[in-house]
Amino acid sequence: MDLKSTLLVVGGSACCFKLLNTVIRFLPTPELARNKSWKWRNISTSLAHSSLTGAWAVVCFYIQPHMVEDLISSQSLLSHSLVAVSTGYFIHDFLDVALNQSFKRSREVLLHHSLVLSCFSLSVTSRLYVGYAVVSLLVEINSVFLHIRQLLLLSGRRNILGTYVALLVFRVCTLAWMTRWLAAHTERVPRYALTMGTVGLSLISIMNVVLFYRLLRADVLPIREKRMAREI
């Protein structure tokens, strides 16, 4: 795709996710989640993005396995389109969160989206590092479980095991591999791209540690406290 076509895909993607978010407004919502209808719509839209892009990333590497050998210049129409579509989603979600949540509650999400948009914008416009961006979208497989967990909690239910297994495999391992790859290819990556990637990975890794702690605090610590209470 040329630059004009790429921008059309990005803009079309943002509009499609906005449309999906609007359609969800008219779909049945669990009774317990009705007082948090915006959050339900936002997470449902995010679940659709994670399901789509996580599966799409796997397909990209299945069809073009040699892309792993050259994450800088190797690409295809399928992989480039994936990054463009995902860029459109992050634009939509950045605006959705910024307009509907206070900055204090949304600053982590806005920081994360800003980092992703910076890296993905470089990738889709320069047609470089597309493979690296596709690797990062494997993390969305874990996001599927996180979003399902959030929706279950909003509807008064709970799912624990799948979230932690997916977090370890698709988030921790993927980001560790990305960090290792970046460190091994510092001589091939321009300074501006290396700085962007290093800062982005560092901040997102810190966010993941915080995420893991919050999951433990929400899921494991209450169970431990109940056991201790029974023993007293």
Score class of each variant (00 low, 15 high):
A133N: 05
S136W: 01
S118I: 08
L111I: 12
S79P: 00
V199L: 06
F94V: 01
Q75N: 10
R214A: 12
H112W: 06
R105F: 07
Y213W: 10
R214L: 07
S114K: 05
L95T: 13
L122T: 07
S202V: 13
S202M: 11
G197L: 14
L77N: 09
C173H: 10
S114T: 06
A166L: 01
L138Q: 03
M178A: 15
G156D: 05
Y164T: 08
V97I: 12
S118H: 07
V169I: 15
T174D: 13
T174Y: 09
E187C: 09
S79F: 02
V220S: 00
F212W: 15
A133K: 01
L194N: 05
R149K: 14
V220C: 04
A183C: 10
V85I: 01
S81T: 04
S79I: 02
F145W: 13
V210D: 13
L152K: 09
V83M: 01
V139N: 06
E187V: 15
A218P: 05
T163Q: 10
F120D: 07
T125Q: 02
A84M: 01
V210N: 15
V165S: 05
S136Y: 00
F90Q: 01
T195D: 10
R171G: 08
V130A: 00
Q101L: 04
Q75R: 11
L215E: 01
H185S: 06
S114Y: 07
C119W: 13
W177S: 05
G131K: 02
L151F: 10
H112N: 04
V83G: 00
S123I: 02
F170D: 00
V169R: 07
I206W: 15
L167R: 11
V139I: 14
H147W: 12
